[in-house]
Simulated assay, not measured.
Amino acid sequence: MAQQKQKKGPKQFLQFGTVGIANAAIDIGALNLLLILFHTDVKWLLLVYNTIAYMLAIANSYYWNARFTFKHSAEGSNRQRILFIVQGLVSLVVSNLVFLGANELLQLIDTNNWLRYNVSKGLAMFLSFLASFFMVKYFVFKDYGKH
């Protein structure tokens, strides 16, 4: 039993990462589409764009992680949905703080807009991915006694 639990962690991380690749494509694709259609350097609009892109990715994340990565413990209960929303909001805060912070730092060294936004988004996605994985695994889809 302990050996099975040890194998589940790395396997889940790999599955979560696979879903994360799709989420990243949605997230960065939506951000870039918004920037192409409605270019801005206004911080609050960048925050709105990042939030829209992240929310699209988080919806995709819930769908696939509940059916693929954590299917053994995903109940589809209101409790899990609420916890998923809470972790999504926490991860969104991480994403927005990192995105805006990295954007500010890269602006100080006069990085061009496209590179600055995409590097900032990449850092934001990576750190929010890590936060999200651990919250989803240990709080949202925690296996409460199921074997």
Score class of each variant (00 low, 15 high):
M1Q: 11
Q4D: 10
K7C: 08
G9E: 14
G9D: 11
G9Y: 15
G9C: 10
F13R: 02
Q15A: 11
Q15G: 09
G17Y: 00
T18S: 13
T18I: 15
G20Y: 01
G20P: 02
A22V: 13
A22C: 10
A24R: 00
A24S: 02
A25G: 13
A25Y: 04
I26F: 01
D27G: 06
G29F: 00
L31S: 01
N32M: 05
N32L: 07
L34G: 03
L35A: 04
L35V: 02
H39K: 09
D41M: 10
V42D: 09
V48R: 08
Y49F: 14
Y49A: 05
N50C: 11
I52K: 00
Y54N: 01
Y54W: 15
L56F: 12
A57R: 00
A57C: 06
N60F: 00
S61Y: 00
Y62C: 02
Y62K: 02
A66N: 11
K71V: 14
K71Y: 13
S73A: 15
A74Q: 08
G76N: 08
Q80A: 04
I82R: 14
F84W: 09
V86G: 06
G88V: 05
L89Q: 09
V90Q: 03
V90I: 15
S91N: 09
V93R: 09
V94K: 10
S95H: 12
N96P: 09
L97R: 05
L100I: 15
G101S: 11
A102Y: 05
N103P: 04
E104D: 12
L105M: 12
Q107P: 02
N112F: 03
W114V: 13
R116M: 08
R116A: 07
R116W: 08
V119N: 04
S120I: 06
L127R: 06
F129S: 00
L130N: 06
A131Y: 01
F133R: 03
V136T: 10
Y138A: 04
Y138E: 06
Y138P: 04
F139Q: 09
F141E: 03
K142T: 05
K142I: 07
D143H: 13
H147P: 04
